[in-house]
Nucleic acid binder design. Structure first.
Lengths: 142, 142
DNA sequence: TTGTAATTGAAAATGATTTTCAATATCAGG
DNA sequence: CCTGATATTGAAAATCATTTTCAATTACAA
């Protein structure tokens, strides 16, 4: 049987392949929503009922270190994870259902350079995130 | 004695003025760093030793509701607070010492409208934050 | 000055996350 | 295909941040 690319990457990094990891990867890799550890736990147990919450935490940590998923910061909390944006993308999150979309748009470079000059800071990272309602939730709203 | 403007605002909103609140406000209003509840607690107790941590949490919550302070999201955690930016400012944070600077720069409107059109999302909020080293920490680095 | 309702701090409760640990499973080497 | 060293597991306990509960205290309006 062929393994998910994330699992192959983990394996290449020296991680062993287990059913627990397979279950967590399957859920995280498929989801377009930000998921908390508990949510991953609940969903992943349908594929692997013996899964423990601790293992979910450990697997999420490994995936984050590999750059495959990332933590999402939201007004209501910062525990959820999503698949990491490819390349230089930013996030757009639905406040209602947690659905995510991505976009690019980096004419931020000019702004950042100008801020660096004005403040004297050496800028190494930036976060840009948009919040709103996805097309689906927008409908239900009106 | 004349009270700090934040205390006056709290008072006008029906909050009573107590030494606990005065101690917390004094620390938060003066700081250019993001401070966690425990840090506020430690610092504020030099002015008011009887202060309890619970009261710090409650006061921070009141100040946040009044829009006087705001929670800061950082890679290392999201528990710290700073004085709320005036008007439409964004944050620049030093990863080393937590020092904060602010900047404006909202030609984001164009970007946001274009993302809204492309994705169908109704965008209601955006977060933009920069991270780096403040002039002081930059010196110690090299 | 006084009464009442807001506020306090301590302790207990909660919730998320991490650590500990003995049992189990993966997988490299024979 | 076995086998053994070692990574991994899940449960329970520990930790850490935050919230709730509650009886005592305090601010402040009358």
């Amino acid at each position: 049987m062929s393994e998910h690319p994330w699992l192959i990457q983990l394996n290449e990094q020296g991680y062993r392949l287990t059913d627990s990891r397979r279950a967590v990867v399957e859920i995280m890799a498929e989801s377009t929503h930000a998921l908390t550890p508990i949510e991953v736990y609940d969903e992943a147990r349908s594929a692997h009922p013996a899964l423990g919450l601790v293992t979910v935490y450990r697997t999420l940590e490994a995936l984050e270190q590999q750059g495959l998923i990332q933590r999402v910061h939201q007004p209501q909390g910062c525990q959820a994870f999503i698949t990491a944006p490819a390349g230089h993308q930013h996030l757009l999150l639905c406040r209602q259902c947690g659905e995510t979309a991505r976009f690019e748009g980096d004419d931020l470079e000019t702004l950042i350079k100008s801020i660096a000059r004005k403040t004297g800071y050496q800028i190494s990272e930036h976060w840009l995130q948009l919040f709103g309602l996805c097309p689906n939730c927008k409908k239900g709203q009106a």
